[in-house]
Design a binder for these strands. Structure first.
Length: 571
RNA sequence: GGGCUCGUAGCUCAGUGGAUAGAGCGCCGGACUACGAAUCCGUAGGUCGCAGGUUCAAAUCCUGCCGGGCCCA
């Protein structure tokens, strides 16, 4: 951020002096190859036409302008078709260390969001059964996005929409009721069309135990009892699974409450008043063709039953009435056909563009190279709880957040569980632990120990090697990475950055011995490395992954023998 | 049949207008009498699905086709 902003400022001044505008498509970024300098700008190629000069000539002229006015730059070169390649002086990079140390855990924070009120809604699985691994991906993504947005100055609230009304819920109540009667020895119809998981049986047994007279109640009353108990228990399980995955929602919003509070009718009235809803053939329709849909959609069937679409519109209406300026929904990719329609509805509500939908692709779970069934209860490792117990929350989260959400993901249980380079989470955590191990060792050195130096000229003198500066450059990029990841809603950019930073650290560690280098050099290097550790910790925090100071203290170390047992006990 | 989405190294994936397309794994070969070898260094490996188009510049944008996944009918 610092370098980019700095370069943009001086380039703007140079362009202004020549009467040239700042081009829309200007890019300032570190070039792919080291030999092209620290940062590279493409303005000369974009403005060649406007300046009536050849790109390279304009670049040469700008290079002269910059070299003439600035002392923070060590070198300005023109290369290729007209790139302006800039190398900063070492003192510029050293200054980053003071920034990191001053900011600590807050390093990388910004006010880009200016307090914008944002809601992130994620998981929102129907409370009809336990969460599966696919929900885990959405959970990790939503939680990490919330962290990213908070870090960049947004006012974020996380929400889980509980679909506790509608058809699926009636089926759930019936499923428990029928199972209860079956357990009581009654003849019941075939259970083919109902939820049949073992958990249904457990709930049925418990309801019967706690309500011994239930079989004598009027059926509607009994089913309601079953339904309420089922939703309570399943939701409690979902909350626990999410908590174990270190995911927490601020608000659990009930669909039922939406219906009962009359929000649906309010929304209908609102749409009708603006001629966006109309009655036809006994049904109520939304005029979605006005927003690019290929046909109008039903809100209330002639039978009086509401569609999902109806309550979803009312729900989003409610979100905006609660003051959110921007709403981010995370959905499974199987709902992709619904995105345009929902966005049309939001437009109809007068909030065009305020809804962003992120689709999360399916996760295919591999065990021993074989795909494990996901949609039925057949497989052993299909629930989120099982997977987290087996591989640990850190490893699962890091993997989910290492891939862009719109590509399908292969989740190999054995690979993710392994503590080696096949598993990048350990690579990054190890870098952090390695630094803390050094800091501990340093404190134990004879003569009162060696502490990290204070930022300042004395320390910087010992940090002028190429590898020292390379680490400083990496640290400088972090705020940019955070800002871009938040902008693109793409936490995987953070995890890729962390892998690179960890790699730079490991290389540095191998090449430069710290503790035996003499007290002054050692303490200067410790300053540098403690800044790396702080940045690694700040980055891992954005992913919700722990930053252990010792690897044997990683927050969710998974024991070889215990894993199988944990699996049965916890889930 | 219509739509969405993906297609990059043997594998898993980054890279969404810039320079000679990258990383990890896997293969092969090296590095512990020092801070954790859960590490590091090196070699090999790619018509960026195919064909056109836009641009000074295309893996990236546009069109068509082929292939995988999904949704709808």
């Amino acid at each position: 951020m610092k370098a980019k902003q700095y370069l943009e400022d001086i380039l703007r001044r140079a362009l202004e002096a020549r009467g040239l505008p700042w081009p829309e498509k200007a890019v300032i970024e570190p070039p792919r190859e080291r030999k092209f300098g620290d940062y590279s700008a493409n303005v000369a190629m974009l403005l060649a036409g406007a300046a009536k000069m050849k790109p390279r000539d304009l670049a040469e002229a700008l290079a002269a302008d910059l070299a003439g006015q600035d002392t923070q730059l060590a070198k300005v070169e023109v290369a290729g078709p007209g790139f302006l390649n800039v190398t900063f002086a070492p003192s510029f990079w050293h200054g980053i260390l003071a920034d990191v140390q001053a900011a600590g855990a807050a390093y990388g924070a910004s006010d880009l969001g200016r307090g914008q009120k944002v809601q992130v809604e994620y998981v929102s699985a129907n409370p009809t059964g336990p969460l599966h691994i696919g929900h885990g991906r959405g959970a990790a993504l939503g939680d990490s996005l919330a962290r990213l947005l908070r870090k960049t100055g947004h006012n974020v609230e996380c929400e889980y929409y509980v679909n506790d009304a509608g058809r699926q819920m009636r089926i759930l109540g019936d499923s428990v009721w029928l199972r209860l009667r079956q357990l009581a020895g009654q003849d019941v119809p075939d259970l083919e069309d109902f939820y049949r998981g073992d958990y249904i049986k457990d709930i049925a047994a418990r309801v019967h135990r706690e309500n011994p007279g239930i079989l004598d109640l009027p059926e509607a009353e009994a089913i309601d009892l079953c339904f309420v108990a089922a939703v309570d228990e399943i939701l409690a399980g979902i909350k626990k699974d999410l908590a174990d995955f270190r995911v927490g929602h601020d608000v659990w919003f009930s669909e039922k409450s939406l219906v009962e509070a009359g929000r649906i009718d309010e929304t209908f009235a609102d749409l009708k008043a603006r001629d966006l809803a109309f009655e036809q053939d006994g049904a109520l329709w939304f005029r979605s063709t006005a927003f690019g849909d290929d046909k109008d959609r039903v809100l209330r069937k002639s039978s009086g039953e509401l569609t999902y679409f109806a309550s979803d519109i009312a729900y989003h209406h409610d979100k905006f009435k609660r003051g959110f300026e921007r709403v981010i929904d995370i959905w499974g990719a199987d709902h992709h056909g619904y995105v345009a329609r929902m966005q049309g509805a939001v437009e109809a509500l007068g909030r065009k563009g305020a809804l962003q939908v992120i689709l999360v692709q399916l996760v295919s779970l591999l065990k021993d190279g074989e795909q494990v069934a996901m949609s039925t209860r057949a497989g052993k490792f299909e629930t989120l709880c099982d997977v987290v117990a087996y591989v640990g929350a850190d490893a699962a989260r890091f993997l989910f957040l290492s891939r862009k959400s719109d590509s399908q993901l292969e989740f190999d249980l054995e690979l993710v569980r392994r503590k080696s380079m096949d598993n990048p989470v350990f690579y990054v955590q190890y870098a952090h632990a390695r630094i803390h191990s050094m800091l501990r060792k340093a404190a134990e050195q004879a003569g009162g120990g060696i502490a990290p130096a204070a930022p300042g000229a004395t320390a910087y003198e010992h940090l002028s090697g190429e590898d020292d500066l390379e680490l400083c450059r990496m640290l400088e990029r972090f705020p940019d990475v955070v800002a871009q990841a938040a902008e693109a809603l793409a936490p995987h950019q953070v995890s890729h950055y962390l892998s690179e930073l960890a790699s730079a650290l490991h290389r540095y560690y191998t090449r430069h011995h710290v503790l035996s280098a003499g007290p002054e050099i050692a303490s200067a290097r410790l300053l540098l490395l403690s800044c790396v550790a702080a940045t690694l910790a700040a980055g891992l925090d954005l992913l919700g992954v722990s930053a252990p100071e010792r690897m044997d203290q990683a927050s969710d170390q998974v024991e070889g023998q215990a894993a199988g047992a944990a699996d049965d006990a916890a889930c």
